[in-house]
Design a binder for these strands. Structure first.
Lengths: 227, 227
DNA sequence: TCGATCAATGACTATAAGTCATTTATTAGG
DNA sequence: CCTAATAAATGACTTATAGTCATTGATCGA
């Protein structure tokens, strides 16, 4: 008797359809100006039904976000699925994060709106758990690469992998948010190349953590192998 | 006949009283959960009166924020009102920004909630202009110090002062927001010292921009003079 | 075929931003 | 001191939207 299974599937599909609709509206308008009625209409459902599948507007917002984090995780995994050295992997991760920022800007924005505590406090615990799970998976990836770079003698052994990860991450975030918020003011008016600055700052930070030996062969390490 | 002048003064005072009330409520609850009725009650005025003095909730929010920026500007000015060298001034500015972050956390938070475009779009043009004016004044301060460091041969002459400023600023912001958002997760659970990391990252970035000569006497440059 | 269970609906409630006709206070002139 | 004119303040009202729940409709198992 596959009825239970089919119902389960249909329920899942409906949840997805709702996320699709919510995504369209949130991408277009952001959190506050988006209305549940709009999302319901876009999903061709009544508002009541939305609340059958998601506890609150905030929960729905997080559900959309989780897709973004899933995409980021996949991009990160692909970035280090090569047999290159850990330093190269680290730069690959940096490039992957920047690519995510460029190609998935809507998700990036949504994620950082999260800092608003308003959202946080209205989210169901299941959603929070899923968020933390994905967060952990992504951090494990990043920290793992840095640890291997330390173990392989490429980064100094007084480098704490988590600390290094946080430093690079927050440096990238700071600039990306600046770019996202008012890129034009900096690039157009003052002629800055923010993307190049981001690469430069991260490179400086990584170099400052490298062993003398690794620094000497920096170019070999970070240049992609030519077959 | 000073009646007109007195009225002007009283109007200004009332505007201040309203900001005081709004500040109390916004500090306590953040933007969305704060209500205009609450603010009105806290100011011992009716809601209608609030709208006589400020165009919208968003405008009132910005008015509070401007106080914060004013405080930051004063702190920055004081940080460089010494006869020390420009590198030392640059570190002073970094310390001043961190002090602002620690001592005026509420303003810091409010400022970064600004990134929410919802707010932006509802603000009157007068408020926007005031914001930009203060922003410009602060940036002029920072960029001016870096320019003097370049001119004085302490930073390499291929360093663009604005670019350097943006790099240091966004690096600091990235970490401060991380600290603000979930300091405990990093310090408590993983034993990181985020404050030390912030200083370290900024130091690395500055050192990477210094001339060889200045780097050689780094300690002398950044150590406060002992009389 | 029919009662039971599950899914969906939309009218309804509560809350909060913003408005405006009315009321209250202040000023200037006679 | 009185009064008309002007300015300031009020709060009931309008509108918008998140979230609820009694009712309706669909699907299932026997």
């Amino acid at each position: 008797m596959g009825i239970k299974e089919r119902k389960e599937r249909e329920k899942g599909a409906r949840r997805e359809e709702i996320i699709n609709a919510a995504e369209r509206i949130f991408f277009e308008k952001g959190f506050a100006p988006a209305t549940m009625d709009e999302i319901a209409e876009s999903a061709e459902l009544s508002k009541g039904t939305l609340y059958l599948y998601y506890k609150s507007k905030e929960d729905l917002y997080i559900a959309v976000l989780l897709r973004g984090s899933e995409i980021m995780y996949e991009m990160f995994k692909k970035a280090i699925a090569t047999d290159e050295n850990p330093i190269r992997h680290l730069f690959n991760l940096g490039e992957a994060y920047f690519a995510y920022f460029q190609e998935q800007r809507n998700y990036f924005r949504m994620y950082y709106f999260l800092e608003n505590p308003r959202i946080h406090s209205q989210v169901s615990s299941e959603m929070m758990e899923q968020c933390e799970l994905l967060d952990t998976r992504i951090w494990d990836l990043v920290v793992g690469i840095i640890r291997r770079a330390v173990e392989g003698g490429l980064l100094r052994d007084d480098v704490d992998p988590l600390e290094a990860g946080v430093m690079l991450w927050s440096n990238s975030n700071g600039l990306m948010r600046l770019i996202d918020r008012d890129e034009w003011a900096w690039t157009g008016k003052h002629g800055l190349n923010l993307e190049a600055m981001l690469r430069k700052a991260n490179k400086l930070l990584v170099q400052a953590m490298m062993t003398e030996k690794a620094k000497a062969s920096f170019d070999d390490l970070v240049t992609p192998a030519r077959p």
